[in-house]
Write a protein that binds this DNA or RNA. Structure first.
Lengths: 172, 172
DNA sequence: GGACATTGTTGACCTGGACAACAATTGCCG
DNA sequence: CGGCAATTGTTGTCCAGGTCAACAATGTCC
């Protein structure tokens, strides 16, 4: 089962407990007890960044589930599209992933007919990465869906907070 | 091999490429070509949040490697310490992890003698979670190291940026 | 020419997230 | 009161990702 579909299914499951929480709120039996202290986690940036990252990725996966593109696959397609002919090593370094991991990502994308590895004319060790026609088409669709995801993010984060976060993180 | 030690070893490995990058910078052969465009990733908050989260966690793991406490374990210990007697379900919900995942985390912490599961008097299904004496000691040490990690984070992010991020994310 | 570095690749291991199924217990409602 | 649904903790299983080691092919440098 593809990742995206499982994620979508999960999102549906996640929606269910909300009604339960609501019911509890309407019938406050011992709800007052359930206010739980985060302790020193409140002083740790990593905790909140982690929660935010998971939350964003879940929405991303859900939004792109129709074309079954994961965040990692998306980033690979985008960077290849913006830098045709770059090597796997360069790509891996840019995205901060291991060469070994990238090999497997490309293996899958190539099997889906979205990318190709051409021999580099100058350096026999390198591969020049390119998008196929299908890959370019897929990337366009993915970017459109990803843009929808990003737009949906803004109001849920608060437009001002979104702008602040993106600016703060981008130039880091 | 424990997670923390492997992470520490890796951190050492990560340090090596820096000198290579330096050498390249000093001998600009075709370095000008290696400026790679992130494309539309520049417009996606999730990408930067992900990079930041990985970066922070790596430093956290490295800093707490002497006592071999992972971020997940740390969060579990902290919240139990701040809310003695809470149930696994409450803890899992609070931390945003699955009950099934928490079971395994607690299994390990209990084997290390840091936590214990007491039968809940009121509800036969629940466990009341507590720290052992050893767990309290370990938590204190962990919090001290975690505070060091957090302090080290500030200058590397920029003090103002750190403050801004923590405030922005905490009240979300 | 030969030592050394880089590149892509494969195999292997481990952590975490996710889901399903289950037993024990509790709550609820007719 | 009795049975049905919900909750809680647990186990098994699968998959994605991170990490490391080793390797062959190729390139670089002295």
């Amino acid at each position: 089962m593809p990742t995206a579909k499982r994620a979508a299914k999960k999102a549906k499951k996640r929606a269910a407990p909300k009604s339960l929480a609501l019911r509890k709120a309407l019938q406050p039996r011992r709800v007052s007890e359930t206010v739980i202290d985060l302790g020193v986690l409140n002083r740790h940036l990593g905790y909140f960044v982690r929660r935010l990252q998971i939350w964003i990725f879940q929405d991303f996966i859900r939004t792109l589930s129709p074309i079954d593109i994961s965040p990692a696959q998306f980033s690979v397609l985008v960077v290849i599209g913006a830098n045709e002919g770059l090597s796997q090593s360069e790509l891996a370094t840019t995205l901060g992933i291991e060469r070994a991991r990238l090999v497997r990502l490309l293996h899958l994308l190539e099997k889906r007919g979205l990318t190709q590895r051409l021999p580099s004319s100058a350096d026999g060790r390198r591969h020049a990465l390119r998008l196929t026609r299908a890959g370019q088409t897929q990337l366009r669709q993915a970017q459109e869906l990803a843009a929808q995801h990003e737009e949906a993010l803004k109001p849920r984060l608060g437009g001002e907070r979104y702008r602040l976060l993106l600016e703060t993180l981008r130039d880091f």
